[in-house]
Structure formats: structure tokens, C-alpha cells
Computed example of a mutant assay.
Amino acid sequence: MKTDSLRINQLSKPAYERYLRYLQALDSLDIEAYTKFLADDCEVRSNNNFPMQGKEAIMQELGAYWQSFKKLEHDLLNIYGTDQNYVLEAVNHYTLLDGKKVSIPAVAFTDLNEDGLVKSVRFYTDTTPVFA
């Protein structure tokens, strides 16, 4: 994960540090570590696709998606919002299975529940270059 391009961060220090751990779980492509941040009834939506609902569905679908590339690295640009509801603007750097590298702008909206677990993520990015 890259944070040196981060211009605006509206999260408190504890919330920011927690979010970095969450993103590191994503970047490590460790589905078990990632789902520890999710509420049981979490919903994840990518672009205009149907949402993934519940940890089990998220584990299966994201796990399958993560098989389509070797590496993911978030390059954080801006984080707007509150400690409970925020949006990340980033560039996601992918290393594909053939070693080719592609970088794609992305935005992710995240909402936490009362226990600090992710209850909803909506991310918007054009992953066409990952599958080209």
C-alpha cells in the first residue's frame, strides 16, 4: 500500500490506522484477514453488479476475483468523511498473472456498524484492463 500520495485524510488517527489494516488485508489478498473486518450481514457492491451479501458470499466471490491477478496495491489519494462513513479515492495498481502491470483509478464508499465492522462497501472502478 502506498500512502505518500495521500493529500486529504478526514479520519481520526485510530480510524485511519484501522482503515490501513483493512486495506492491507485487501492488498495481501488474504480473504480470511479481510473478512474479519466485515459484519456478518455486510454487503459489497462493485459498479453496477448485483451486491455480494454476507461474509460467505463475499469470501467466495472476492476469492475467485483475486485469482485473476497476482498482486494488488492501493495508492491512497484522498479519504473524505467521518470515522463511521467515508470514501476513499485511490489508484489501484495490479500485477496481472502474466506479469503485466496496470493502474486503475477507484473510489470506495464504506459504512461501519455500531461495532466498527464494515456493513457496506460500494466501489467504483473500471477493471476492464485487468481482464484485457
Rank of each mutant, 00 (worst) to 15 (best):
D30M: 01
D126N: 10
Y22R: 09
G54T: 05
Y65G: 05
M52F: 08
L96C: 02
F109G: 10
H74A: 10
V130I: 14
S5Y: 14
Y124A: 11
E43W: 01
E56Y: 00
L62A: 07
R18S: 15
T3K: 12
L72P: 02
Q84I: 02
S120A: 07
F50S: 11
Y65C: 14
F50I: 08
A132H: 09
T127C: 08
L23I: 11
G116E: 10
V87F: 02
D30C: 03
L112P: 01
L26V: 11
Y80D: 11
L26T: 07
Y94P: 04
M59C: 11
K100D: 15
Y16A: 07
E56M: 04
V107S: 13
L96E: 01
D83K: 01
E73T: 10
H74E: 04
G99W: 06
F123C: 11
Y34T: 12
Y22C: 01
S28H: 12
H93A: 14
L23F: 01
I79G: 00
F109N: 10
A106W: 09
K13T: 12
G116W: 14
K70P: 03
T127A: 13
T127Q: 10
Y80P: 02
A132M: 05
E61A: 15
I104K: 05
F50H: 10
I31N: 02
T110K: 02
T3I: 15
V107Y: 06
Y65M: 15
V102F: 08
L77R: 11
Q24C: 12
Y86I: 00
Y16I: 04
K119H: 13
T3C: 14
M59V: 13
L62E: 13
S68A: 13
Q53T: 14
K70C: 13
L20S: 03
R7V: 14
E89Q: 08
V130M: 12
E114W: 02
N92G: 12
D98M: 02
Q67D: 12
S5M: 14
N113R: 00
Y94V: 07
A108D: 05
D41Y: 07
D75F: 01
D126V: 10
F69I: 07
V121Y: 02
D75Q: 14
S28P: 03
G99T: 08
S12E: 07
H93K: 12
L97N: 13
K70I: 09
R45I: 09
L20T: 02
Q84R: 04
Y65A: 14
V107H: 06
L88R: 01
Y86H: 13
A106G: 10
I58V: 15
Y19N: 06
E73P: 06
A108N: 04
N78G: 00
L72D: 00
F69H: 04
Y65Q: 06
A64W: 03
L72T: 12
S28Q: 14
P129G: 05
P51L: 10
Y86V: 00
Y16G: 03
T95I: 15
D30K: 02
Q60T: 09
T35G: 08
V118Q: 04
D41R: 06
E17L: 14
V121H: 00
E43K: 14
Y124W: 04
S28M: 03
E73K: 13
L76E: 03
N113H: 06
E73W: 04
K100V: 13
D98T: 05
D30I: 03
